[in-house]
């Protein structure tokens, strides 16, 4: 019975092709919802920020005569110090993360075998706990009478100065919070190097260091660069670490932006700062991403 009806549709009436105008192609059709959503939820807000950055200072409407006043005050003021702090802290974080994560990524990709999945999960879990809660855990660790100093006191009788509220602790907090963002792309990169290619280099007389330099490093570069990019961008946009762990000793650019929006109620100035930050970050991301083919990195074929 089923066979007969199937046969009928095959040989019987063939459905007419839809007019070409309606055929968007399956790829484009599937992309429509997310593109529409991101236009409303991502592109439009960014345009709003850009719009606000040209409004007269300390106003809240979007339909006034545009002015460059905010940008002028940004460039004549002291915001560049905050910018430099943000970039500097970001760079320090990324360098430390590279050193910390490479051996772990190497292990996950090559050595740990079936344990890799469990370890990966262990590194993933903290991602889902609010950043400020986790940073708070570090305060409990480093604070006077906390886990570290309390233990020290109980064992040696003296309590050293707390390290809280120093630049070093801010970097530690950022390294801690953004570690998975360096680790996972790096692991992906390291696992992209075929075992036979490394064996071949070794077999052709290369030493361990030469195999690393000539084969491992260049071939895992896409993953490593993406890890650098992700953690750098996130670290530059960080705010809680400096505020909570650093005790506002250092004011990163994101903090400046927040102050403009909240305490000083100067939305246009805050917007101008945000636009500059977006330009730096956006340019960096597009510049780096442009050089990579995401299909190869994410494992198509």
């Amino acid at each position: 019975m089923a066979e007969i009806s199937a046969h009928e549709t095959v040989s019987g009436q063939l459905p007419a092709a839809k007019p070409a105008a309606w055929r968007l192609g399956p790829g484009r059709a599937n992309a429509v919802p997310i593109i529409l959503f991101l236009l409303i939820g991502f592109a439009a807000p960014l345009l709003a920020v850009i719009g606000y950055s040209f409004m007269p200072p300390r106003t809240f409407g979007l339909w006034q005569t545009p002015t460059l006043e905010n940008y002028v005050s940004v460039f004549t003021g002291t915001s560049y110090i905050s910018f430099l702090w943000s970039l500097g802290l970001g760079a320090a974080t990324v360098l430390l993360l590279a050193v910390i994560c490479y051996p772990v990524a190497y292990g996950l990709a090559r050595v740990f075998g079936r344990w890799s999945t469990l370890l990966t999960l262990l590194f993933t879990i903290p991602l889902f706990v609010s950043e400020n809660v986790r940073i708070y855990g570090w305060i409990l660790f480093f604070i006077k009478n906390g886990v570290l100093l309390g233990t020290f006191k109980a064992w040696f009788g003296v309590e050293p100065e707390s390290w809280l509220f120093t630049q070093g602790i801010i970097v530690l907090g950022m390294v801690y919070v953004y570690l998975p963002f360096m680790l996972f792309p790096m692991t992906l990169g390291v696992s992209m190097v075929p075992k036979e290619t490394r064996d071949a280099a070794f077999d052709l007389g290369a030493t361990r260091w030469q195999v690393f330099k000539e084969v491992d490093l260049p071939l895992s570069m896409p993953g490593i660069v993406i890890g650098f990019l992700l953690s750098f961008v996130l670290a530059v946009g960080a705010i809680a670490e400096a505020k909570v762990l650093g005790g506002q000793k250092v004011i990163p650019i994101t903090h400046d932006i927040e102050i403009a929006f909240t305490y000083s109620q100067n939305w246009p100035l805050g917007s101008a700062l945000a636009v500059l930050l977006m330009l730096v970050v956006g340019a960096l991301v597009l510049l780096v991403l442009r050089r990579f083919d995401l299909d190869t990195i994410l494992g198509r074929r």
Binding site: T197, F202, P218
Partner: peptide, 20 residues
């Protein structure tokens, strides 16, 4: 004696040419 110190050399199944 490790592979890099043996007077032997292998042509691999995947050829293992350096793609870069």
């Amino acid at each position: 004696v490790p592979a890099n110190r043996r007077p032997t050399c292998m042509v691999f199944q995947s050829l293992a040419l350096f793609p870069h």
